[in-house]
Computed example of a mutant assay.
Amino acid sequence: IQIEPSTGVLRLPEDAITFESGSANLREKYKKRLFTLGRALSSELKCYEPSGVANSSCLEINPMGYTLDAVFIEGHTDNKPFGGDTTGRLNLALSTERANTIYSELKKTNAELFSFKNPKGQQLFSLSGYGEERPLEGHKHEVPTSDEANRRIEIRFVMATPELSEQEFDSLKKKIEAVNEF
């Protein structure tokens, strides 16, 4: 697993979990790895939802009491045209189906993850697909290439933003109004 703290992305590289070219099916060995990942996420993420922040056992994991707004399971593909489609639409659909495969498998084996809520009471987990549009650094290809590194899943953690105080909001409003006077 690779983690990019600045972007909130946990990357599952191709040697951890990958898909065959043109497929959203998950092999059995990857299901076992996903189950282990789901258990780890369950134990950690409970400390980033509103009901868990106040839990004394979460103080070590999340001492600042931050909460999550969303957790996106993101699917990606290589840039090889899928089904002969050169528009990228089928790769986009395939990447979304890959994210849905991971989402469904996590839900089946780690249902607790899908009980976690954000501060608005909304479910944390969702999914998105990017097709071939976000290749890994060093894996962008000008010609269609079956690059396993780009057939990946990423999990993006989006933190909830703190609410503005009434004073902060009034100050921001005055600044915007001043700009509008020009």
Score class of each variant (00 low, 15 high):
Phe116Gly: 01
Phe116Ser: 02
Phe116Asn: 01
Phe116Pro: 00
Phe116Met: 05
Phe116Lys: 00
Lys117Gln: 03
Lys117Ala: 02
Lys117Cys: 01
Asn118Tyr: 12
Asn118Gln: 13
Asn118His: 13
Pro119Val: 06
Pro119Gly: 06
Pro119Tyr: 04
Lys120Met: 15
Lys120His: 15
Gly121Trp: 14
Gly121Thr: 09
Gln122Trp: 08
Gln122Pro: 05
Gln122Asn: 14
Gln122Phe: 05
Gln122Gly: 10
Gln122His: 09
Gln122Arg: 12
Gln122Leu: 09
Gln123Asp: 11
Gln123Asn: 15
Gln123Ala: 15
Gln123Phe: 11
Leu124Val: 01
Leu124Pro: 01
Leu124Arg: 02
Phe125Lys: 03
Phe125Cys: 04
Phe125Ile: 06
Phe125Ser: 04
Phe125Thr: 03
Ser126Thr: 04
Ser126Val: 03
Ser126Met: 04
Ser126Ala: 06
Ser126His: 02
Ser126Cys: 03
Leu127Ala: 02
Leu127Lys: 00
Ser128Cys: 04
Ser128Thr: 00
Ser128Val: 02
Ser128Ile: 02
Ser128Gln: 00
Ser128Phe: 00
Ser128Trp: 00
Gly129Ala: 04
Gly129Met: 04
Gly129Asn: 03
Gly129Leu: 04
Tyr130Cys: 02
Tyr130Trp: 07
Tyr130Leu: 07
Tyr130Phe: 08
Gly131Thr: 06
Gly131His: 04
Gly131Tyr: 03
Gly131Arg: 01
Glu132Thr: 07
Glu132Val: 05
Glu133Leu: 12
Glu133Arg: 15
Glu133Gln: 13
Glu133Ser: 13
Glu133Asn: 15
Glu133Trp: 14
Glu133Val: 12
Arg134Glu: 12
Arg134Cys: 07
Arg134Ala: 05
Pro135Gly: 11
Pro135Ser: 10
Pro135Cys: 11
Leu136Glu: 09
Leu136Ala: 05
Leu136Lys: 06
Leu136Asp: 06
Leu136Met: 12
Glu137Pro: 03
Glu137Leu: 10
Glu137Trp: 10
Glu137Asp: 11
Gly138Cys: 14
Gly138Glu: 06
Gly138Phe: 14
Gly138Lys: 13
His139Trp: 02
His139Phe: 07
Lys140Gln: 09
Lys140Pro: 02
Lys140Cys: 02
Lys140Asn: 08
Lys140His: 09
Lys140Leu: 08
His141Leu: 09
His141Lys: 07
His141Asn: 10
Glu142Phe: 15
Glu142His: 11
Glu142Gly: 14
Glu142Ile: 15
Val143Pro: 00
Val143Arg: 11
Val143Gly: 09
Val143Tyr: 13
Val143Trp: 11
Val143Gln: 13
Val143Cys: 09
Pro144His: 14
Pro144Leu: 13
Pro144Phe: 12
Thr145Gln: 12
Thr145Tyr: 09
Thr145Trp: 07
Ser146Leu: 08
Ser146Met: 09
Ser146Ile: 09
Ser146Asn: 14
Asp147Arg: 00
Asp147Phe: 03
Glu148His: 08
Glu148Val: 04
Glu148Ser: 10
Glu148Gly: 08
Glu148Ala: 09
Ala149Arg: 04
Ala149Asp: 03
Ala149Val: 08
Ala149Thr: 06
Ala149Cys: 07
Ala149Met: 07
Ala149Ser: 08
Ala149Glu: 05
Asn150Glu: 06
Asn150Leu: 10
Asn150Ser: 03
Asn150Pro: 01
